[in-house]
Design a protein around this nucleic acid. Structure first.
Length: 823
RNA sequence: GCCCCUGUGGCGGAAUCGGUAGACGCGACAGAUUCAAAAUCUGUUGUCCAUAGGGCGUGCCUGUUCGAGUCAGGCCAGGGGCACCA
């Protein structure tokens, strides 16, 4: 039996499911049920992304232990998910906060240490002052923490880092193989990895025997060089600091700026002249001033640049501020060589003012310049990436402990595998800021795994994105002794269809792609890409409501008065309807899935989240839409119940003869089956539902006549209907399936078999156009010869009228589609 | 600033390959049923002129084509991603 692994991104156990979960998990469930019916062995598990800061905040605010809070939330959300009728394999359930999971993660970490995929380094980090922890670059959005929203500061800390940057090229290359991923996500990852081709160039520092190494993507503009600039943290600046208070002050200022708001609000380009000068590699005797500048990043390239103001906007701004020279070296496409004033020219063109490069196109000049640098032994062509290593240390309690011990004698020592899991202590307090593990009286005191002497345990825990970077592999065998069971992973992975929100386009998905490669390196798995197919579903939105005093109102507090105006349900005060926005607690435009399921039933809720909008786009939750879904459910139920007497018994043999009415019904049924199947395969659930509605209309119009085959055809049609609705409305359809006399449940029944002959018509309706305008439609035999079709078209009265006195210049006949008469 | 996506009735949206634009749903309107209402059922519903019938119509402008929502070029609007990345 072929396998199919369908997975929705596992939820954070915040306490309640929200309507976005309903949409996400319904889509996955439809795929799972459909694939099962198509004969696949389906894995469809569920678990909990259960570590993270909210549990610690709850502990602090409500005086409840993070574990207790988390497990209570899990219990509630599991109950809510079960009420949705999801076909999940609960025997595979896992929670990342359970030692049975995070202990295995610690094992993986030791393997990573062994193979040098993780290392420790003192580095500048993004510090979130509210969450009191470090954030990865990916977790800083607009200079603020992705969770807390606090302005992020720069701090220097010892950090555990994953070598994700070493995989830049591999992660980039891998994107090409992911043809079942949205282009948008691939593009976002490509941009994030940020590959650029350029050169490293050594500039001699005049009067010394030292070099300044820079990175540039524009070696062709070397003749336009006007100054050099290094980052505040560049070794050169650091070395000059003690003897140069101007530089020391400036470096301190840069650190204060960090990623703070000022920096984002287009910080002015500033710098300090070091007094040193660099020798131009091509121009004998020319030297360039070296600045420390705030717009140069230590983390990118070499932390130093040469500046060509005419062809780089930042360099130009800086040059204008400090009165440095601006030499144009690239003429634009029209040969324009005019001086650059306030706008740098970054387009293509021909080299000027550039010695041996003059007259060359920029691309050729680039190559020639690098060749000369290599000759001079002053440069080399290189590739650079924006992607940096992933700092995973978090100074928090509720996360996976990093299984490492710091020993005065032996240094940083990995824990022994047999000591795993390193379990979090239960008795922790959250009354003071900082890391509770660090405050704990005894937990960090241990013995060195190497020499046995007293030593200190690492108190940092892992970023929760580590937890979600391999859970899909653990799902195959969640209680296995090893982190992943080789045989099970070989069978199930990669995930065939992964479904989740676009907000994880970079963070979670890139980390998981790295983790799979790293685990392949350590021998844990054999696959490279974890997610073969990815689908990103849109958000659920809702109208917003405001009372006269400007306060947000919940949808359930708003109703319509007799005049149809929106009013407050209790006070009758008038209400303003605002825009349709992403559901958020602050704007109160939320609906509670629990209430929805109570009111409309799980089937109607599932149906509605699939029905109206394409699944990758945002959908608006409306009560009217949910009511529509409920009505369909009632209608189908009523129809089948009322027509049970008009159908043949289960397994009655197919009659040899069908009346016209029966054949017409069969055709509609099989056409519906074909389209719904196709739509589900493409995850176009809204199209599948539109087709089902059409078929419901046909079915509802069918009247039992007793003519040959009609009772057999009606059962066939009903069974097709129940089967195709099945993945979306499991409760209703199981009931109907039983009413139809089946002894086995629908969920275990195969998808109906398509009879292709019944999906093709023997007559077709052809449009007749005159000069591209529709004038008539004609019924003809399928595949009728063109000249016969043409004759029929020309005989149509409305066509004759439209042609009038004009001579016919040409007649185009597209078989089975259209006739266009050109006059 | 750079990169990407999306613009179709009152609304959500459909249109597989360039071939009858507006499927299907919601809403609205009219009617049936009802003492009445709810529920249900039937019909109408892009727009303009209107009697038949016709004109116009997929953000705007050009173009390619017998034929364009669909392809190409140029704009406009909305959304998203990245952003001192040298």
């Amino acid at each position: 039996m072929p396998k199919y692994y369908v997975l929705e991104m596992f939820p954070y156990p915040s306490g309640n499911i929200h309507i976005g979960h309903v949409r996400n998990y319904t889509m996955g469930d439809v795929v799972a049920r459909y694939k099962r019916a198509r004969g696949f062995n389906v894995l469809h598990p569920m678990g909990w992304d259960a570590f993270g800061l909210p549990a610690e905040n709850a502990a602090r605010d409500k005086n409840v232990h993070p574990a207790e809070w988390t497990y209570a939330n899990i219990a509630n959300m599991r109950r809510e998910l079960k009420s949705m009728g999801l076909s999940l394999d609960w025997s595979k359930e896992l929670a990342t906060c359970h030692p049975g999971y995070y202990g295995k993660q610690q094992e993986l970490f030791l393997d990573f240490m062994r193979d040098e995929l993780v290392y420790r380094k003192e580095t500048w980090v993004n510090w979130d002052p509210i969450d009191m922890t470090v954030l990865a670059n990916e977790q800083v959005i607009d200079g603020r923490g992705w969770r807390s929203g606090a302005l992020v500061e720069k701090r220097k800390l010892n950090q555990w880092m994953f070598r994700i940057a070493d995989y830049s090229e591999a992660l980039l290359d891998g994107l090409d193989t992911l043809d079942r991923w949205p282009d948008r996500v691939r593009l976002m990852q490509e941009n994030w990895i940020g590959k650029s081709k350029g050169a490293r160039v050594q500039f001699k520092i005049a009067g010394t025997d030292q070099d300044l190494e820079i990175y540039t993507t524009r070696p062709d503009t070397l003749y336009g060089a006007s100054f050099m600039a290094v980052a505040a943290d560049h070794p050169l600046a650091q070395k000059l600091m003690p003897d140069n208070s101007a530089i020391a002050d400036f470096v301190a200022e840069c650190h204060r700026m960090g990623t703070s708001e000022e920096a984002i609000e287009k910080a002015e380009k500033k710098g300090v002249d070091t007094g040193l000068r660099a020798e131009h590699p091509f121009i004998e005797g020319k030297t360039l001033p070296i600045y420390v500048a705030n717009f140069v990043l230590m983390e990118y390239g070499t932390g130093a640049i040469f500046a060509c103001p005419a062809h780089d906007q930042r360099d130009l701004d800086f040059a204008r501020k400090y009165g440095l020279e601006v030499t144009r070296v690239v003429a634009d496409a029209d040969g324009n060589e005019a001086d650059v004033e306030t706008e740098a020219y970054t387009g293509p063109g021909t080299l000027i003012n550039s010695g041996f490069l003059n007259g060359l196109e920029a691309d050729d000049a680039r190559k020639k310049a690098v060749a000369r640098l290599v000759e001079l032994d002053q440069g080399v062509e290189t590739t650079n990436y924006r992607l940096r290593d992933w700092g995973l240390s978090r100074q928090r309690y509720w996360g996976c402990p990093i299984p490492v011990v710091h020993c005065e004698a032996c240094g940083t020592v990995p824990e022994k595998a047999e000591n795993l899991p390193i379990v979090l202590p239960d008795d922790v307090t959250f009354d003071k800021p900082g890391n509770p593990l660090d405050h704990h009286p005894s937990w960090k005191h241990t013995n060195c795994p190497s020499c046995g002497k007293a030593a200190i345990r690492e108190t940092d825990t892992m970023d929760t994105f580590v937890d979600s970077s391999w859970y899909f592999s653990r799902f195959c065998a969640p209680r296995n002794d090893k982190p992943v069971s080789q045989a099970d992973v070989d069978y199930w992975l990669p995930v065939d269809q992964y479904i989740g929100g676009i907000e994880h386009a970079i963070l979670h998905l890139l980390y998981s792609r790295f983790f799979s490669r790293a685990m392949k390196e350590t021998g844990a798995v054999e696959f490279t890409e974890p997610f073969d197919g990815l689908f990103t579903q849109g958000m659920v939105t809702h109208e917003t409501y405001k009372s006269a005093d400007g306060a947000w109102l919940f949808p359930q507090d708003v109703t319509q008065n007799d005049a149809g105006e929106p009013v407050h349900i209790e006070t009758g005060a008038s209400v303003t309807i605002g825009g349709v926005e992403k559901m958020s607690k602050s704007k109160k435009n939320v609906v509670d899935p629990g209430e929805i399921i109570d009111k409309f039933g799980a089937d109607a809720a599932r149906w509605f989240v699939l029905s109206d909008s394409p699944p990758d786009r945002d959908m608006e939750w409306t009560d009217a839409g949910a009511t529509g879904a409920w009505r369909f459910k009632q209608r189908l139920h009523r129809f089948i119940e009322e027509n049970l007497d008009n159908i043949v018994a289960l397994d009655a043999p197919e009659p040899s003869e069908f009346c016209d009415q029966a054949t017409a019904l069969r055709k509609e049924g099989h056409k519906t089956l074909m389209h719904v199947t196709d739509s589900i395969e493409k995850l176009h659930f809204n199209n599948a539902i539109a087709r089902i509605y059409e078929f419901m209309k046909t079915l509802g119009d069918f009247k039992a006549t007793g003519k040959p085959g009609s009772d057999w055809a009606l059962r066939e049609a009903m069974e097709i209907m129940v089967s195709v609705v099945g993945p979306m409305m499991p409760h209703l359809t199981e009931e109907l399936w039983e009413m139809l006399g089946h002894k086995t449940i629908l969920a275990d029944s195969p998808w109906p078999t398509l009879i292709e002959e019944l999906t093709v018509d023997n007559t077709v309706t052809i449009a007749v156009q005159v000069k591209g305008k529709l004038r008539a439609t004609i019924e003809v035999q399928k595949d009728a010869p063109s000249d016969a079709v043409e004759a029929l078209a020309l005989a149509e009265e409305s066509v004759i009228k439209a042609i009038g006195e004009n001579p016919i210049r040409k007649v185009i006949v597209v078989p089975n589609r259209i006739v266009n008469i050109v006059i």
